[in-house]
């Protein structure tokens, strides 16, 4: 038997593809040839082992084909391509519109700027600085004006007071134009001033001491009244308790007398019987 025929028969028998006649013939052959039988057993066992490699479950991907009408011819492109084409078309359209409208993207220290037409980023920055300086100058000027207004108001008030003082001094000087102030007069004036001050302080201290004494006196009187009141209340309470205790004692005494009387009568009765 040729090797190829042997292989053919063996595989056919192994996978059950021999006819009944051929199968019987091959089995008879195996009975006679132990080596052939052994090989068959080996391959059969191998097949058993191969069955350990089972199919794995897998989910088919999300259908990229929709429920297209049956009248349409199939194979004209996947539906998946439709959104991709739509996105691509939109992007192209946007690019064209951007180009025609002069869409510009520029970048500077402040960041990326998107806009239409020429973007003058430097003039923008200068304008911004100038605007800022103008705002600062305006704020300073407003503040200065406010301070000046206040100063002017105070100045006019001070001026009025000063004028009044000047007028009164002028009157005094006018009245006593002939008198001249000497050192002696000044000393006398100071002594007088000290004396008056001393009297003022003394009077204040005297008044203060008198007020304090009156205050303490009032406080002590009130405290005394309070203590007296408390004492009288306590005495009344003790007296009431004593009266209650005395009443309780008399009741107990009566009860004891009743019990004794009852006992005596019981004993007497038992003695008679």
């Amino acid at each position: 038997m040729k090797q190829t025929d042997f292989n053919k028969e063996m595989t056919d028998y192994l996978y059950g593809e021999l006819s009944a006649v051929e199968r019987r013939a091959f089995e008879e052959k195996m009975q006679k040839d132990q080596q052939l039988k052994h090989e068959f057993e080996e391959l059969k066992a191998l097949r058993t082992q191969l069955q350990a490699l089972t199919d794995k479950d897998v989910m088919e991907p999300f259908p990229i084909w929709g429920n297209r009408s049956a009248t349409k011819k199939s194979g004209k492109g996947l539906i998946l391509l439709r959104p991709v084409t739509a996105i691509a078309a939109t992007l192209i359209l946007l690019v064209m519109v951007g180009y025609l409208a002069g869409f510009t993207i520029s970048m500077n220290r402040q960041g990326i700027m998107l806009g239409f037409g020429h973007l003058d980023t430097t003039s923008e920055a200068q304008l911004s600085d100038a605007h800022f300086k103008a705002l600062v100058a305006q704020a300073i000027a407003e503040n200065n004006n406010e301070i000046l207004d206040k100063l002017n108001t105070r100045d006019s008030s001070f001026q009025e007071k000063f004028t009044a003082l000047e007028t009164s001094l002028y009157k005094v000087v006018k009245q006593d134009q002939s008198n001249t102030i000497t050192d002696h007069d000044l000393e006398k004036f100071l002594e007088e001033l000290e004396r008056r001050n001393a009297e003022l302080v003394r009077g204040y201290l005297t008044l203060s001491a008198a007020q304090q004494q009156a205050y303490f006196k009032t406080m002590l009187t009130q405290f005394n009244d309070f203590v007296q009141e408390q004492r009288s209340e306590d005495l009344a309470l003790i007296q009431n308790n004593l009266i209650e205790l005395k009443a309780s004692q008399s009741i107990q005494k009566q009860k004891t007398d009743q019990v004794l009387a009852s006992l005596i009568s019981t004993i007497n009765y038992n003695t008679k019987n």
Binding site: K56, E60, W65, N67, S69, S74
Partner: peptide, 28 residues
């Protein structure tokens, strides 16, 4: 036959039937 006629629903079902077989063939 329906899938050949362009019925994508039928095609989807066909995929559902055969996907696992072809996957496991490729996996092996």
């Amino acid at each position: 036959e329906k899938a050949q006629g362009g019925d994508e629903h039928a095609y989807g079902k066909l995929v559902g039937l055969w996907f696992k077989r072809i996957y496991n063939f490729s996996l092996k």
